[in-house]
């Protein structure tokens, strides 16, 4: 379990903001930190990683104190068991994919002792054929897979992902989300993810913390946080409205859900406040869809 109490006065272009966060992060789950730019999301991650000093508070990870202002405890980043993945992946350009993974260990000796772990991760993110290549010869999605694998190779107590997929195109994003879920299934790391993409949050996260002006204002499952109502329909898909066309007395709404475009017939009352670009929940009953083997 992760107990996090942090406060910090942050300076920004808009003036000063007081960040006060007091929460518990579930072990072995993917928790998303959601909020507007400047709400303090990256600052929370940086304080957890030990890269930014809080003004006060307490961080306890699996019973171990990482930070305690009153007791003057502040472990340096290298003493905290964390993995950190940034948007720009930050791989070492002079090392191969495999060397990048091995470098995550404290010494070459420990890296040698953990070759099985390295092999397993290289295989899980499908990088076997690329493991002896240098980062500049890889695509953005491949680099991000290396960064994810590297962050997990030491089996950290906490994996921090700061908008790791936001620079990738939609198809690559979907694939990386699948890899992330596979990795999570295999190793069950505790993950704190920063994401703006509601579809992505529904797909990968168990818990959402909404951060507004430095304070957590909502906490719950993606459905509790983003859907105003609980709907009993068992066939639920989150997507983004691409297009709304009218055809006589009905409207046809095209929704991008994952990589698929689905179409929904809607009544005038359904689309009064709906615009292209809006995030939507598409719901049907479990009785309606047909199913057939491919």
């Amino acid at each position: 379990m992760l107990e996090v109490q942090l406060n910090k006065t942050l300076m920004s272009a808009q003036g000063t903001m007081k960040l006060e966060v007091d929460t518990v992060i579930e072990p072995g789950k993917i928790t998303t930190l959601f909020g507007e730019s400047g709400a303090g999301k990256t600052s929370v991650l940086r304080m957890l990683a030990g890269l930014l000093k809080p003004d006060g508070g307490n961080i306890v990870v699996n019973g171990r104190v990482w930070y305690n202002a009153a007791q003057k405890i502040a472990l340096p980043p290298q003493k905290r068991s964390i993995g950190y993945v940034f948007q720009d992946y930050a791989l070492f350009p002079n090392m191969t994919v495999r060397q990048n993974l091995e470098f995550a260990f404290a010494s070459k000796k420990i890296a040698r002792q953990n070759q099985v772990q390295v092999d397993q991760l290289v295989e899980l993110v499908a990088l076997q054929s690329l493991q002896h290549r240098k980062p500049h010869t890889l695509s953005g999605g491949q680099c991000q897979r290396v960064a994810l694998a590297r962050a997990l190779v030491t089996q950290p107590d906490l994996l921090l992902l700061d908008e790791p997929l936001s620079a990738l195109d939609q198809t690559m994003r979907q694939r990386l989300q699948d890899y992330l879920l596979q990795l999570h299934q295999k190793f069950s790391p505790t993950i704190l993810l920063v994401s703006h993409d509601v579809g992505e949050i529904f797909k990968v996260s168990h818990q959402v913390l909404v951060l507004e002006h430095g304070h957590i204002t909502q906490k719950g499952t993606p459905r509790q946080v983003f859907a105003q109502q609980q709907i009993s329909g068992k066939f639920q898909v989150v997507g983004k409205v691409l297009d709304i066309v009218t055809e006589g007395v009905v409207y046809i709404v095209s929704v991008l859900a994952g990589n698929e475009i689905i179409k929904v017939v809607a009544d005038a009352s359904d689309i009064t406040q709906l615009n292209p670009g809006d995030e939507v929940l598409v719901v049907s009953k479990a009785f309606n869809p047909l199913i057939r083997k491919l």
């Binding site: 109502q229 609980q230 709907i231 009993s232 329909g233 719901v283 009953k285 009785f287 309606n288």
Partner: peptide, 8 residues
């Protein structure tokens, strides 16, 4: 009966 959903 199977066309009606509940919302709460």
């Amino acid at each position: 009966a199977n066309e009606i959903m509940f919302a709460s």
